[in-house]
Amino acid sequence: MYQINLMSAQLFSHSQILMAGVDEVGRGCLFGPVVAAAVVFNFTTIAQLQDIGVKDSKQLSVKRRESLVTEIKNRAISYQISYASSQEIDRLNILNASLLAMKRSITKLSVTPELCLIDGNQKIPDLTIAQETIIGGDRTSPIIAAASILAKVWRDQLIVRLAAKYPHYDLENNKGYGTKKHRMGLQQYGPCFHHRRSFKLG
């Protein structure tokens, strides 16, 4: 059962309040960027997300995630997807790169939400918009779950495209995570441009 986490009861008394759900995917991967999505809804639209089957992207099949992307975008007031590259991850560390990707997605929105609900326990540094962190937010907040779906589908499609260029790592199946085949490819061919050199690749 979803819960809508309220930072302030007064803040949400107006039905047209604009809230952004923000989530990232790919933190644990060895390959590729960490990708974040921010998606904005008004308060009255949020209940519709659960009705159409929005939930944590990890609990959905590939086909269902892809079908929900269009439905989420059609209901959203604004959405953006951004990322931090493997090189930025190596330079900043994965936590700071994830926060950077989330901040980029928020600042590129065509509207400014009154509140951002951020998955996790780390606030985004220097964000001028009110924000609330929610541990396990992709499981408990429908707008964070919507962001997780957009980010997951976008990143997976990117990795599949890159798999054609880098066929040695079984990327189409592992999406950049450190599976046995991926690590075998690393042992045989070494890392490529998109691998995170600061991660344990061996």
Results as ranks from 00 to 15, higher is better:
Asp51Cys: 07
Ala84Gln: 08
Asp90Ile: 14
Tyr79Ala: 10
Asn42Leu: 03
Phe41Gln: 06
Arg104Tyr: 06
Gln87Asp: 08
Gly53Val: 06
Ser82Glu: 07
Leu99Cys: 03
Met102Thr: 10
Phe41His: 00
Ile94Pro: 13
Val111Glu: 01
Arg104Cys: 03
Ile77Leu: 15
Asp90Tyr: 01
Ala37Phe: 00
Ser67Gln: 15
Thr45Asn: 14
Ser82Ala: 15
Ser85Glu: 09
Ser110Trp: 00
Gln48Leu: 13
Asn93Tyr: 10
Lys63Phe: 08
Ile106Asn: 10
Gln80Ala: 14
Ser57Tyr: 00
Ile72Trp: 02
Ser78Pro: 12
Leu109Met: 11
Ile52Gln: 00
Lys108Leu: 11
Tyr83Cys: 10
Ala47Lys: 11
Asp90Ser: 13
Val40His: 04
Leu49Arg: 02
Gln59Ile: 12
Lys58Trp: 07
Ile72Pro: 04
Asn42Val: 08
Ala84Ser: 15
Gln50Ala: 12
Ala97Leu: 13
Met102Gly: 06
Val62Gly: 02
Ala97His: 05
Arg104Val: 11
Thr70Gln: 13
Ala47Gln: 12
Ser78Lys: 07
Arg65Asp: 09
Ser105Asn: 06
Arg91Cys: 13
Leu100Asp: 01
Gln59Trp: 02
Ala101His: 02
Ile77Gly: 01
Asn74Asp: 14
Asp51Tyr: 05
Ile52Tyr: 01
Asn74Leu: 13
Ser110Pro: 06
Leu92Lys: 08
Ala76Asn: 08
Arg64His: 12
Gly53Gln: 02
Ile46Glu: 04
Thr112Asn: 04
Ala76Asp: 04
Val40Ser: 09
Leu60Gly: 01
Ile52Pro: 05
Ala101Asn: 02
Val69Tyr: 09
Glu66Gly: 13
Ile81Leu: 12
Ile46Asn: 08
Asn74Phe: 07
Ser98Leu: 08
Arg65Cys: 15
Val62Met: 02
Ala38Tyr: 10
Ser78His: 10
Ile81Tyr: 02
Ile89Leu: 04
Val111Ile: 12
Ile77Val: 15
Ser61Ala: 01
Ala37Val: 06
Ser110Ala: 08
